[in-house]
Design a protein around this nucleic acid. Structure first.
Lengths: 232, 232
DNA sequence: GTTGTTCCTTGACTTAAGTCAAATATAAAT
DNA sequence: ATTTATATTTGACTTAAGTCAAGGAACAAC
């Protein structure tokens, strides 16, 4: 029972379920299953039946698709307390993309049938899910915008600013994803990332250290991201 | 009252609200407002407050974003009974993109506050909305995949097949959107569309008439869309 | 340390697709 | 029909970014 209690407390602390009455958190706890995935292990693959969704407790997960020739487009890189696979629970039968652990990751799993049942009895939970999906939609919209409206330096600048904003606006950005992953997220290749980061350094927009990047001219980066300025 | 009755019947026929109890359709009818938009008129612009969402009764609407230098990325082109602006109702405060009537369009509008209220009292309505948002998410996922994993001929092939499938798999596709719009949707420019359609004709994948396109080699197109084959 | 592995950088080359500009074609208006 | 406007096609040119291939770091294991 100790383990169940832990899950319930954990659930209550997840933004998605915030403000739910205690007894519903308990119901959630009862249908939730804790799982651990090793680095590189797949949660699910594109086309699999959508049997439920996950919420990350710790670790890092990438959601992506592969093209016929093996190129990979990453849609999201997700961390603590972020859910994934949730769209498949409501829409179609299958997961539209694949999900893989980038590092050892622990997550809780909510099986579809029981969760849908719960939703039906609890409108405010439904409202939370609606807000969540809307947010995802917004994030994806941003990605589409980036991919088609901006060239790579702009996308990269936007991503650096995103990372910076997420880390409390501290001047230095930890590069906890490989340039390979970065490239996949930005719809390009690692070589291009390298070259652009170099140009950004030359133009004194950023300073590079081994495992991190410092933003020197945030305005300049923002201009790049807006497509206002371009890189020499 | 006649007008209200019409709206209620209309609402009951919309997939999004299918299977709802009559009294809820009536409630929806009471908060719904019918509006008409001229060709070129804006429903809302990116950044506007998300005051509600629309469902198309007749006409055609494009949802898009503009870059700093005026390039336009179209996210969806929507027709009868399709909703738009719904994400803004739940997520943030603002519409993430703009919506404009491509032809004279009539729609019903649901104001946010009253709709949210309704959702809270009716879980199965919430479930419909969840499914809808998931579907949107899926469509966008596809767009991202197209934009980054495939080159333009592949995207165009995928789009032609999409149009074909939508129109009951009839051999000929009506080009009811300009090549300009098409280009915007596929993240490219009209010139490129022209050239690729020409090459597709030369390779006997399609046959072009003035206002329509016939698919000759569907398999060939599908191969292009999958990225299996390439255009000479 | 030294070895092996993985990741990152750099260079030379190629190419898809964008820009600019001009010529046609189609549709709309009088 | 003739004119006007709008869309489409075509050509010549440019360029961002991809491919291929070779060196260099960084890191882990022994």
């Amino acid at each position: 029972m100790v383990k169940v209690m832990n899950i319930i407390q954990t659930i209550a602390s997840i933004p998605l379920f915030e403000g739910l009455p205690d007894n519903y958190c308990e119901s959630l706890g009862l249908i939730a299953v804790r799982k651990t995935y090793a680095r590189g292990q797949m949660f699910f693959s594109e086309g699999d039946d959508g049997i439920g969704f996950y919420i990350i407790l710790s670790g890092k997960v990438k959601v992506f698709k592969l093209s016929a020739d093996g190129k990979e487009q990453i849609f999201h890189i997700l961390e603590d307390k972020e859910p994934f696979g949730e769209a498949a629970v409501f829409a179609g039968e299958h997961y539209p993309a694949s999900a893989q652990a980038l590092v050892e990751t622990s997550a809780i799993f909510f099986p579809r049938p029981k969760f849908v049942e719960l939703i039906l009895s609890q409108p405010s939970l439904a409202l939370s899910m609606l807000a969540l999906l809307s947010l995802r939609l917004r994030k994806l919209t941003l990605l589409v915008e980036n991919l088609s409206l901006k060239e790579v330096p702009g996308r990269l600048a936007a991503y650096l600013i995103f990372l910076n904003d997420r880390n409390n606006h501290s001047k230095s950005i930890e590069l906890d994803v490989s340039k390979n992953q970065m490239a996949g997220l930005l719809g390009t290749i690692p070589e291009t990332i390298s070259r652009i980061l170099k140009r950004m350094s030359e133009e004194k927009l950023i300073k590079m250290s081994t495992r991190s990047i410092s933003i020197i001219d945030k305005k300049g980066l923002a201009d790049l991201a807006e497509g206002v300025r371009r890189l020499a």
